[in-house]
Design a protein around this nucleic acid. Structure first.
Length: 197
DNA sequence: CTGACGATTCACT
DNA sequence: GTGAATCGTCAGC
């Protein structure tokens, strides 16, 4: 296993980072030995203060968004609709609040635990197929906000899975209709899970 | 202190 | 495809 180094996260081009996170493994260990994780198959880039879809748009710096202004390589976890946790990867350098939303993973490790967390009814395909369900599947809550992605509890590993650019689809982001012209930007990146079959 | 709303999910039609 | 659930966050008073 290989952790990503700080120079991966601290680049300024969040769109490139969002593309390159595809195929990397996101892994949590919420209690000792209880590993759950899988390969990232969907991401969205949020381009800091100039992006109307971003929580940091216009340089808005609040208690919640503070962690986005820190150095890249840590998590930004927040609650949406009062019930879902969403996980972001903070990128770029200090005071440049770029972030990548992890929207879906292909579950690989700790499948029984993931199924238990998600409930019996969830099919394999939907175990971690949205940003809220990714967090539920991996046990991610606000407790992990601001944590490094090189932690034992929360980590991203490079398994050297090569994703050909032609397998990456770029489309507009989900649920950001309020962002006016920025809502149309092709900042959502997906790959087909069959890559891992 | 208050009101409005959201980077969503799920059950149901 | 539609609508309800549900509460932390933040701007404004």
């Amino acid at each position: 296993m290989t952790l990503l180094c700080s120079s991966f996260y601290q680049r300024d081009d969040v769109v490139t980072i969002a593309r390159e996170l595809l195929g990397k493994w996101l892994i949590t260990e919420m209690s000792p030995g209880l590993l759950t994780g899988g390969a990232i198959i969907e991401t969205e880039a949020y381009q800091g203060i100039t992006d109307k879809a971003s929580h940091a748009y216009g340089g808005r710096r609040t208690k919640r968004t503070e962690v986005m202004f820190q150095k890249g390589g840590i998590s930004y976890v927040y609650v949406c609709y009062g019930m879902h946790h969403l996980l972001n990867v903070v990128t770029s350098v200090e005071d440049t609040p770029h972030a990548v939303l992890i929207r879906a993973i292909h579950p690989i490790m700790g499948l029984e635990i993931i199924q238990e967390r998600r409930g019996e009814k969830a099919s394999f395909r939907t175990l971690a197929s949205g940003p809220g369900s990714v967090c539920k599947a991996l046990g991610i809550t606000k407790d992990l906000n601001g944590l490094s992605f090189s932690s034992s509890q929360l980590r991203i590993e490079d398994k050297n899975t090569r994703i050909a650019p032609r397998h990456i689809k770029a489309t507009p982001r989900i649920g950001v209709g309020y962002a006016e012209e920025d809502a149309k930007l092709p900042f959502r990146f997906t790959i087909d899970p069959s890559v891992f079959a």
